[in-house]
């Protein structure tokens, strides 16, 4: 598991992985279907695109829906968005066999690089889906209050080990009977010192805590490369 957390970016498994800081920071976003992964990616792009050179890889399960959403919303120019097909197994493409995703990341860097940040969005999956450390340098797991306030208690690799846990759609909590305090207590019990953000990414400034976290990871990444 994440016994190596006190260190900074110790893993460089990927064949493509150059020295830390000499390529873009790769951040994975995973989580269940409908929790707001694509909305988070879109909001991150809007919040950071003026300061950072960003590209996005989406992993749709059976369509180009997520990539098309990002294109429609015009959060980035089309040449900065790539879609990977996952053969009905989104977790395989981000964890067990990362080759197609690595290619997509490298193709983007070659075509529109140099880049500061590549966001790799998983297809909606279950609570066990996590990214290979050969593909991403850090990962965000996105759940939402409407999916049930017992998800943090249930744990699983995504909730327990992601570098950042985002609990999205907090504005819906009163309508779906979710207890945010309980979710926060359960998340802290599962995650120890790993950070958790409660927010609604569609709300005004709702993405700010997530964007700040990404920027701090990027600062650490760049510092390692110097």
């Amino acid at each position: 598991m994440h016994l190596d957390h006190p260190e900074v970016f110790p893993e460089r498994y990927a064949h493509s992985a150059a020295e830390p800081g000499s390529r873009a920071l790769r951040v994975g976003l995973g989580g269940p279907v409908g929790s707001g992964k694509t909305a988070t990616v879109a909001a991150l792009c809007r919040a950071l695109r003026d300061r950072l050179r960003i590209a996005v890889v989406t992993n749709d399960i059976y369509t180009r829906e997520d990539a098309d959403f990002l294109l429609r919303e015009a959060v980035l120019p089309p040449e900065r968005i790539a879609a990977v097909e996952t053969g009905a197994c989104p977790h395989t493409a981000i964890r067990d066999d990362i080759s197609a995703n690595l290619e997509a990341v490298e193709d983007l860097e070659a075509a529109v690089g140099p880049l500061d940040l590549v966001l790799v969005e998983s297809g909606g999956d279950n609570l066990t889906a996590t990214f290979s450390r050969g593909l991403v340098d850090a990962q965000i797991f996105v759940i939402d209050v409407a999916g049930g306030d017992d998800i943090p208690r249930k744990g699983g690799p995504g909730v327990t080990t992601a570098d950042l846990l985002v609990v999205n759609k907090t504005d819906l909590a009163p309508y779906v009977g979710s207890d945010l305090d309980r979710m926060a207590r359960d998340a802290a019990a599962q995650r120890g010192d790993l950070p958790v953000v409660f927010t609604s990414v569609r709300a005004e400034a709702g993405i700010d805590p997530v964007a700040s976290w990404v920027e701090s990871r990027l600062a650490a990444w760049t510092a390692v490369g110097v």
Partner: peptide
């Protein structure tokens, strides 16, 4: 079939 060379996405 689990050798990580991308085959899982092809039918």
């Amino acid at each position: 079939g689990r050798f990580p060379a991308g085959g899982h996405a092809h039918s």
